[in-house]
Simulated scan of single mutants.
Amino acid sequence: MRRVLAALGILAMLAGSLLLAGAAEAKLRVAMVTSESGLGDRSFNDMMNQGMKKAAAEFGIDYVVIQPRSISEFQSTLARAAGQGFDFIVGSSFDMIKPMQTVAAAFPNQKFGLVDVGPDPIAPNVVSSVTKDWEGSFLVGMIAAKTTKTGTIGFVGGKDIPIIHRFFIGYYYGAKMANPQVNVLETYAGTFTDPAAGKEYTLSLVNQKSDINFAVAGATSAGVIDAAKSTKTLAIGVDSNQNYLAPGFVLTSMVKRVDTQAYDMIKSVVDGTFKGGTVLYYGLKEGGVDAAMDQYNKGLIADDVLKQVDVLRQKVISGEIVVPNYFDLKPGQKEMGTPPMATPPSIAGKSN
Protein backbone atom coordinates (compact mmCIF):
# COMPACT_ATOMS: atom_id res chain seq x y z
CA MET A 1 0.00 0.00 0.00
CA ARG A 2 2.88 2.36 0.87
CA ARG A 3 4.40 1.69 -2.54
CA VAL A 4 1.06 2.44 -4.24
CA LEU A 5 0.65 5.69 -2.33
CA ALA A 6 4.22 6.70 -3.15
CA ALA A 7 3.64 5.98 -6.84
CA LEU A 8 0.43 8.03 -6.79
CA GLY A 9 2.32 10.87 -5.11
CA ILE A 10 4.97 10.83 -7.84
CA LEU A 11 2.28 10.83 -10.52
CA ALA A 12 0.55 13.78 -8.85
CA MET A 13 3.83 15.68 -8.76
CA LEU A 14 4.46 14.94 -12.44
CA ALA A 15 0.93 16.03 -13.35
CA GLY A 16 1.41 19.26 -11.42
CA SER A 17 4.68 19.93 -13.21
CA LEU A 18 3.04 19.32 -16.58
CA LEU A 19 0.24 21.72 -15.70
CA LEU A 20 2.73 24.40 -14.68
CA ALA A 21 4.69 23.86 -17.88
CA GLY A 22 1.50 24.13 -19.89
CA ALA A 23 0.57 27.36 -18.12
CA ALA A 24 4.02 28.78 -18.83
CA GLU A 25 3.71 27.86 -22.49
CA ALA A 26 0.26 29.48 -22.62
CA LYS A 27 1.52 32.84 -21.31
CA LEU A 28 0.43 35.61 -23.68
CA ARG A 29 3.25 37.25 -25.65
CA VAL A 30 2.79 40.91 -26.59
CA ALA A 31 4.98 43.31 -28.54
CA MET A 32 4.76 47.09 -28.28
CA VAL A 33 6.18 49.00 -31.26
CA THR A 34 6.94 52.60 -30.34
CA SER A 35 6.85 55.73 -32.45
CA GLU A 36 10.21 57.05 -33.65
CA SER A 37 10.75 59.00 -30.41
CA GLY A 38 10.92 55.72 -28.48
CA LEU A 39 10.92 55.16 -24.74
CA GLY A 40 12.24 57.96 -22.60
CA ASP A 41 10.15 60.60 -24.37
CA ARG A 42 8.41 61.34 -21.03
CA SER A 43 5.29 61.60 -23.14
CA PHE A 44 3.25 59.28 -25.38
CA ASN A 45 5.46 56.18 -25.49
CA ASP A 46 6.30 56.26 -21.80
CA MET A 47 2.62 56.68 -20.94
CA MET A 48 1.63 53.76 -23.14
CA ASN A 49 4.37 51.62 -21.59
CA GLN A 50 2.71 52.14 -18.21
CA GLY A 51 -0.33 50.34 -19.58
CA MET A 52 1.89 47.49 -20.77
CA LYS A 53 3.38 47.19 -17.29
CA LYS A 54 -0.04 47.13 -15.71
CA ALA A 55 -1.19 44.38 -18.10
CA ALA A 56 1.95 42.38 -17.36
CA ALA A 57 1.34 42.63 -13.62
CA GLU A 58 -2.37 41.77 -13.76
CA PHE A 59 -2.48 39.20 -16.56
CA GLY A 60 0.99 37.67 -16.31
CA ILE A 61 1.81 38.44 -19.93
CA ASP A 62 5.29 38.59 -21.39
CA TYR A 63 5.89 41.76 -23.35
CA VAL A 64 8.73 43.38 -25.22
CA VAL A 65 9.16 46.94 -26.44
CA ILE A 66 10.52 47.34 -29.97
CA GLN A 67 11.83 50.80 -30.87
CA PRO A 68 12.18 51.62 -34.58
CA ARG A 69 14.68 54.40 -35.25
CA SER A 70 12.58 56.07 -37.91
CA ILE A 71 9.17 56.00 -39.60
CA SER A 72 10.74 54.20 -42.57
CA GLU A 73 11.38 51.20 -40.31
CA PHE A 74 7.78 50.80 -39.13
CA GLN A 75 6.68 48.28 -41.77
CA SER A 76 9.73 46.04 -41.50
CA THR A 77 9.57 46.14 -37.70
CA LEU A 78 5.90 45.14 -37.65
CA ALA A 79 6.53 42.37 -40.18
CA ARG A 80 9.40 40.92 -38.12
CA ALA A 81 7.25 41.01 -34.98
CA ALA A 82 4.39 39.26 -36.82
CA GLY A 83 6.82 36.59 -38.00
CA GLN A 84 7.89 35.91 -34.41
CA GLY A 85 4.45 34.68 -33.38
CA PHE A 86 3.40 37.29 -30.82
CA ASP A 87 -0.20 36.90 -29.69
CA PHE A 88 -0.74 40.63 -29.97
CA ILE A 89 1.23 43.50 -31.49
CA VAL A 90 0.33 47.07 -30.54
CA GLY A 91 1.69 50.24 -32.15
CA SER A 92 1.80 53.83 -31.00
CA SER A 93 2.02 56.18 -33.95
CA PHE A 94 -0.31 57.87 -36.40
CA ASP A 95 2.43 57.33 -38.99
CA MET A 96 2.05 53.59 -38.44
CA ILE A 97 -1.40 53.32 -40.06
CA LYS A 98 -0.30 52.42 -43.59
CA PRO A 99 2.59 50.15 -42.51
CA MET A 100 0.25 48.28 -40.17
CA GLN A 101 -2.41 47.93 -42.88
CA THR A 102 0.17 46.36 -45.18
CA VAL A 103 1.50 43.96 -42.56
CA ALA A 104 -2.00 43.11 -41.25
CA ALA A 105 -3.01 42.08 -44.78
CA ALA A 106 0.07 39.84 -45.04
CA PHE A 107 -0.64 38.26 -41.61
CA PRO A 108 -4.47 38.02 -41.48
CA ASN A 109 -4.46 35.77 -38.40
CA GLN A 110 -2.26 38.09 -36.36
CA LYS A 111 -4.00 40.36 -33.85
CA PHE A 112 -2.86 43.99 -33.97
CA GLY A 113 -3.70 47.20 -32.10
CA LEU A 114 -2.94 50.83 -32.89
CA VAL A 115 -3.34 53.39 -30.14
CA ASP A 116 -4.69 56.89 -30.64
CA VAL A 117 -5.09 57.30 -34.38
CA GLY A 118 -7.98 58.39 -36.62
CA PRO A 119 -11.67 57.47 -36.76
CA ASP A 120 -11.44 55.01 -39.64
CA PRO A 121 -11.02 51.27 -38.93
CA ILE A 122 -7.51 50.11 -39.83
CA ALA A 123 -8.04 46.50 -40.92
CA PRO A 124 -10.21 43.45 -40.03
CA ASN A 125 -7.54 42.16 -37.62
CA VAL A 126 -6.64 45.55 -36.07
CA VAL A 127 -8.37 47.26 -33.16
CA SER A 128 -7.61 50.97 -32.92
CA SER A 129 -8.47 53.81 -30.60
CA VAL A 130 -9.12 57.53 -30.70
CA THR A 131 -8.33 59.76 -27.77
CA LYS A 132 -10.62 62.76 -27.79
CA ASP A 133 -7.60 64.99 -27.28
CA TRP A 134 -9.61 67.92 -28.61
CA GLU A 135 -11.75 67.73 -25.45
CA GLY A 136 -8.73 67.79 -23.14
CA SER A 137 -7.12 70.52 -25.24
CA PHE A 138 -10.32 72.53 -24.83
CA LEU A 139 -9.83 72.53 -21.05
CA VAL A 140 -6.18 73.58 -21.15
CA GLY A 141 -6.98 76.26 -23.75
CA MET A 142 -9.59 77.70 -21.42
CA ILE A 143 -7.09 77.63 -18.53
CA ALA A 144 -4.42 79.33 -20.65
CA ALA A 145 -6.77 82.11 -21.78
CA LYS A 146 -7.86 82.77 -18.19
CA THR A 147 -4.27 82.76 -16.90
CA THR A 148 -2.29 84.69 -19.52
CA LYS A 149 -0.99 88.10 -18.49
CA THR A 150 -0.08 89.27 -21.99
CA GLY A 151 -3.30 88.28 -23.73
CA THR A 152 -1.34 86.04 -26.12
CA ILE A 153 -0.91 82.28 -25.86
CA GLY A 154 0.82 79.81 -28.16
CA PHE A 155 0.78 76.29 -29.55
CA VAL A 156 3.88 74.30 -30.58
CA GLY A 157 3.04 71.23 -32.68
CA GLY A 158 5.50 68.53 -33.63
CA LYS A 159 4.42 68.23 -37.26
CA ASP A 160 1.86 70.15 -39.31
CA ILE A 161 -0.44 67.13 -39.71
CA PRO A 162 -4.15 66.43 -39.10
CA ILE A 163 -3.80 64.60 -35.78
CA ILE A 164 -1.90 67.59 -34.32
CA HIS A 165 -4.53 69.95 -35.73
CA ARG A 166 -7.02 68.11 -33.50
CA PHE A 167 -5.19 69.45 -30.46
CA PHE A 168 -4.93 72.97 -31.84
CA ILE A 169 -8.63 73.18 -32.71
CA GLY A 170 -9.64 72.14 -29.19
CA TYR A 171 -7.09 74.48 -27.60
CA TYR A 172 -8.23 77.40 -29.76
CA TYR A 173 -11.92 76.70 -29.10
CA GLY A 174 -11.42 76.59 -25.31
CA ALA A 175 -9.29 79.72 -25.32
CA LYS A 176 -11.72 81.74 -27.42
CA MET A 177 -14.70 80.56 -25.36
CA ALA A 178 -12.94 81.77 -22.22
CA ASN A 179 -11.80 85.05 -23.77
CA PRO A 180 -12.81 85.95 -27.35
CA GLN A 181 -10.08 88.63 -27.41
CA VAL A 182 -7.17 86.31 -26.62
CA ASN A 183 -4.54 85.99 -29.34
CA VAL A 184 -3.70 82.35 -30.14
CA LEU A 185 -0.46 81.75 -32.05
CA GLU A 186 0.54 78.42 -33.61
CA THR A 187 3.78 77.00 -34.95
CA TYR A 188 5.14 73.57 -35.92
CA ALA A 189 8.67 72.37 -35.21
CA GLY A 190 8.59 69.73 -37.96
CA THR A 191 9.77 66.97 -35.64
CA PHE A 192 8.71 64.88 -32.65
CA THR A 193 12.27 64.01 -31.63
CA ASP A 194 14.23 67.27 -31.26
CA PRO A 195 13.97 69.21 -27.97
CA ALA A 196 16.33 71.88 -29.32
CA ALA A 197 13.86 72.65 -32.11
CA GLY A 198 11.04 72.79 -29.57
CA LYS A 199 12.92 75.38 -27.56
CA GLU A 200 13.77 77.44 -30.65
CA TYR A 201 10.17 77.60 -31.87
CA THR A 202 8.90 78.41 -28.39
CA LEU A 203 11.36 81.28 -27.97
CA SER A 204 9.99 82.69 -31.21
CA LEU A 205 6.48 82.64 -29.75
CA VAL A 206 7.70 84.22 -26.52
CA ASN A 207 9.24 87.00 -28.59
CA GLN A 208 5.72 87.59 -29.94
CA LYS A 209 4.47 88.08 -26.34
CA SER A 210 3.08 84.57 -25.86
CA ASP A 211 3.47 83.76 -22.16
CA ILE A 212 1.79 80.32 -22.16
CA ASN A 213 2.68 77.70 -24.80
CA PHE A 214 1.06 74.32 -25.31
CA ALA A 215 3.55 71.64 -26.37
CA VAL A 216 2.14 68.89 -28.61
CA ALA A 217 5.36 67.48 -29.99
CA GLY A 218 6.44 64.19 -28.39
CA ALA A 219 10.05 64.35 -27.22
CA THR A 220 10.33 67.81 -28.83
CA SER A 221 8.00 69.05 -26.09
CA ALA A 222 10.86 68.92 -23.58
CA GLY A 223 12.34 71.93 -25.37
CA VAL A 224 9.08 73.85 -25.01
CA ILE A 225 9.16 73.25 -21.27
CA ASP A 226 12.85 74.20 -21.08
CA ALA A 227 12.09 77.45 -22.91
CA ALA A 228 9.34 78.25 -20.40
CA LYS A 229 11.77 77.80 -17.53
CA SER A 230 14.49 79.95 -19.13
CA THR A 231 12.10 82.79 -20.05
CA LYS A 232 10.00 82.67 -16.86
CA THR A 233 6.89 81.92 -18.90
CA LEU A 234 4.60 78.88 -18.73
CA ALA A 235 4.30 75.68 -20.74
CA ILE A 236 1.47 73.15 -20.99
CA GLY A 237 2.58 69.52 -21.17
CA VAL A 238 0.99 66.78 -23.21
CA ASP A 239 0.14 63.05 -23.20
CA SER A 240 1.61 62.18 -19.78
CA ASN A 241 1.59 64.42 -16.71
CA GLN A 242 4.67 66.57 -17.34
CA ASN A 243 4.09 69.03 -14.50
CA TYR A 244 7.06 67.62 -12.59
CA LEU A 245 9.55 68.43 -15.37
CA ALA A 246 9.68 72.11 -14.37
CA PRO A 247 7.68 72.78 -11.20
CA GLY A 248 6.22 76.27 -11.29
CA PHE A 249 6.69 76.61 -15.05
CA VAL A 250 4.25 73.95 -16.34
CA LEU A 251 0.77 75.39 -15.99
CA THR A 252 -0.86 71.97 -16.45
CA SER A 253 -0.61 68.96 -18.75
CA MET A 254 -3.20 67.66 -21.18
CA VAL A 255 -3.07 64.02 -20.13
CA LYS A 256 -4.04 61.33 -22.63
CA ARG A 257 -4.67 57.95 -21.05
CA VAL A 258 -3.02 55.91 -23.77
CA ASP A 259 -1.91 53.61 -20.96
CA THR A 260 -5.55 52.68 -20.41
CA GLN A 261 -6.06 52.14 -24.13
CA ALA A 262 -3.10 49.75 -24.44
CA TYR A 263 -4.24 47.92 -21.30
CA ASP A 264 -7.82 47.57 -22.56
CA MET A 265 -6.65 46.19 -25.90
CA ILE A 266 -4.48 43.56 -24.20
CA LYS A 267 -7.32 42.68 -21.84
CA SER A 268 -9.57 42.00 -24.82
CA VAL A 269 -7.04 39.49 -26.15
CA VAL A 270 -6.72 37.89 -22.72
CA ASP A 271 -10.46 37.51 -22.14
CA GLY A 272 -11.34 36.62 -25.73
CA THR A 273 -13.33 39.76 -26.57
CA PHE A 274 -10.83 41.15 -29.10
CA LYS A 275 -12.65 42.46 -32.15
CA GLY A 276 -10.63 43.66 -35.10
CA GLY A 277 -11.92 46.37 -37.39
CA THR A 278 -13.31 48.40 -34.48
CA VAL A 279 -12.42 51.85 -33.14
CA LEU A 280 -12.56 52.65 -29.41
CA TYR A 281 -13.11 56.22 -28.17
CA TYR A 282 -11.71 57.79 -25.00
CA GLY A 283 -12.85 61.31 -24.06
CA LEU A 284 -13.70 63.25 -20.91
CA LYS A 285 -16.72 61.02 -20.30
CA GLU A 286 -14.55 57.89 -20.43
CA GLY A 287 -11.74 59.39 -18.36
CA GLY A 288 -9.50 59.33 -21.42
CA VAL A 289 -8.26 62.93 -21.18
CA ASP A 290 -7.98 65.67 -18.58
CA ALA A 291 -5.97 68.65 -17.34
CA ALA A 292 -3.47 67.44 -14.74
CA MET A 293 -3.49 69.03 -11.29
CA ASP A 294 -0.93 68.10 -8.64
CA GLN A 295 1.60 69.53 -6.20
CA TYR A 296 3.87 70.68 -9.03
CA ASN A 297 1.39 73.20 -10.49
CA LYS A 298 -0.42 74.03 -7.27
CA GLY A 299 -1.17 77.74 -7.09
CA LEU A 300 -0.51 78.45 -10.78
CA ILE A 301 -4.21 78.35 -11.65
CA ALA A 302 -6.69 80.54 -9.79
CA ASP A 303 -9.38 78.78 -7.75
CA ASP A 304 -12.20 80.41 -9.71
CA VAL A 305 -10.64 79.13 -12.96
CA LEU A 306 -10.47 75.61 -11.54
CA LYS A 307 -14.17 75.85 -10.68
CA GLN A 308 -14.93 76.95 -14.24
CA VAL A 309 -12.94 73.97 -15.54
CA ASP A 310 -15.15 71.61 -13.55
CA VAL A 311 -18.29 73.27 -14.93
CA LEU A 312 -17.09 73.10 -18.53
CA ARG A 313 -15.94 69.49 -18.12
CA GLN A 314 -19.46 68.50 -17.11
CA LYS A 315 -20.98 70.47 -19.99
CA VAL A 316 -18.80 68.57 -22.46
CA ILE A 317 -19.71 65.26 -20.85
CA SER A 318 -23.43 66.11 -20.99
CA GLY A 319 -23.21 67.23 -24.62
CA GLU A 320 -24.18 70.84 -23.92
CA ILE A 321 -20.78 71.83 -25.29
CA VAL A 322 -19.50 69.96 -28.36
CA VAL A 323 -15.82 70.66 -28.87
CA PRO A 324 -14.99 70.55 -32.60
CA ASN A 325 -12.92 67.64 -33.89
CA TYR A 326 -10.65 68.62 -36.77
CA PHE A 327 -11.46 65.40 -38.63
CA ASP A 328 -15.15 66.35 -38.71
CA LEU A 329 -14.53 69.74 -40.30
CA LYS A 330 -15.27 70.22 -43.98
CA PRO A 331 -12.80 72.10 -46.18
CA GLY A 332 -13.55 75.81 -45.97
CA GLN A 333 -15.95 75.40 -43.03
CA LYS A 334 -16.51 78.83 -41.46
CA GLU A 335 -17.92 77.85 -38.05
CA MET A 336 -17.29 74.95 -35.70
CA GLY A 337 -18.51 73.43 -32.45
CA THR A 338 -21.52 73.94 -30.17
CA PRO A 339 -21.93 76.78 -29.39
CA PRO A 340 -20.67 77.79 -32.84
CA MET A 341 -17.43 79.71 -33.19
CA ALA A 342 -15.49 81.01 -36.18
CA THR A 343 -12.97 78.47 -37.49
CA PRO A 344 -9.40 79.80 -37.24
CA PRO A 345 -8.12 81.03 -40.63
CA SER A 346 -5.07 78.72 -40.53
CA ILE A 347 -7.36 75.68 -40.36
CA ALA A 348 -10.30 76.87 -42.48
CA GLY A 349 -8.14 76.90 -45.58
CA LYS A 350 -6.81 73.36 -45.13
CA SER A 351 -8.36 70.12 -46.38
CA ASN A 352 -8.58 67.09 -44.12
Score class of each variant (00 low, 15 high):
residue 37 S to T: 10
residue 159 K to F: 03
residue 330 K to W: 12
residue 19 L to R: 15
residue 60 G to Y: 10
residue 60 G to Q: 11
residue 105 A to G: 06
residue 319 G to D: 04
residue 140 V to G: 13
residue 80 R to Y: 12
residue 259 D to N: 13
residue 310 D to M: 04
residue 276 G to T: 04
residue 87 D to N: 11
residue 238 V to T: 14
residue 41 D to C: 07
residue 257 R to A: 01
residue 283 G to R: 04
residue 138 F to Y: 15
residue 61 I to M: 12
residue 10 I to G: 01
residue 260 T to F: 07
residue 15 A to F: 12
residue 236 I to A: 02
residue 328 D to Y: 08
residue 73 E to S: 13
residue 188 Y to I: 00
residue 55 A to C: 15
residue 63 Y to K: 09
residue 285 K to S: 12
residue 105 A to R: 10
residue 76 S to N: 08
residue 113 G to T: 09
residue 332 G to S: 10
residue 145 A to V: 00
residue 242 Q to W: 01
residue 123 A to Q: 04
residue 48 M to I: 15
residue 137 S to P: 08
residue 117 V to Y: 09
residue 344 P to V: 02
residue 307 K to Q: 15
residue 344 P to M: 08
residue 229 K to D: 14
residue 93 S to G: 07
residue 260 T to G: 08
residue 189 A to R: 07
residue 239 D to G: 07
residue 54 K to Q: 15
residue 323 V to P: 13
residue 338 T to G: 04
residue 213 N to H: 10
residue 61 I to E: 12
residue 90 V to A: 08
residue 225 I to Q: 02
residue 274 F to T: 08
residue 253 S to H: 03
residue 200 E to R: 13
residue 168 F to D: 13
residue 272 G to H: 00
residue 313 R to N: 05
residue 143 I to H: 11
residue 232 K to P: 03
residue 20 L to P: 10
residue 210 S to Q: 13
residue 335 E to Y: 12
residue 117 V to P: 02
residue 332 G to V: 05
residue 239 D to P: 13
residue 18 L to A: 11
residue 298 K to Q: 15
residue 268 S to M: 08
residue 65 V to Q: 01
residue 185 L to K: 12
residue 289 V to D: 00
residue 192 F to T: 00
residue 255 V to R: 12
residue 161 I to M: 04
residue 61 I to R: 09
residue 243 N to M: 02
residue 225 I to D: 02
residue 122 I to T: 12
residue 244 Y to D: 13
residue 38 G to I: 03
residue 63 Y to L: 14
residue 263 Y to R: 07
residue 309 V to K: 09
residue 213 N to G: 04
residue 113 G to C: 10
residue 213 N to A: 05
residue 309 V to P: 12
residue 151 G to H: 03
residue 138 F to V: 08
residue 222 A to P: 00
residue 76 S to T: 11
residue 173 Y to E: 06
residue 265 M to Y: 05
residue 255 V to T: 11
residue 341 M to D: 07
residue 2 R to M: 00
residue 214 F to Q: 04
residue 312 L to W: 13
residue 335 E to I: 09
residue 46 D to Q: 05
residue 340 P to D: 08
residue 13 M to D: 07
residue 66 I to M: 05
residue 17 S to C: 14
residue 237 G to W: 02
residue 259 D to K: 10
residue 219 A to P: 06
residue 310 D to Y: 03
residue 190 G to F: 02
residue 1 M to E: 10
residue 309 V to L: 13
residue 279 V to Y: 01
residue 199 K to E: 15
residue 291 A to Q: 01
residue 263 Y to A: 13
residue 172 Y to Q: 09
residue 48 M to K: 03
residue 49 N to M: 02
residue 102 T to E: 15
residue 259 D to Q: 09
residue 40 G to V: 03
residue 169 I to N: 07
residue 139 L to E: 15
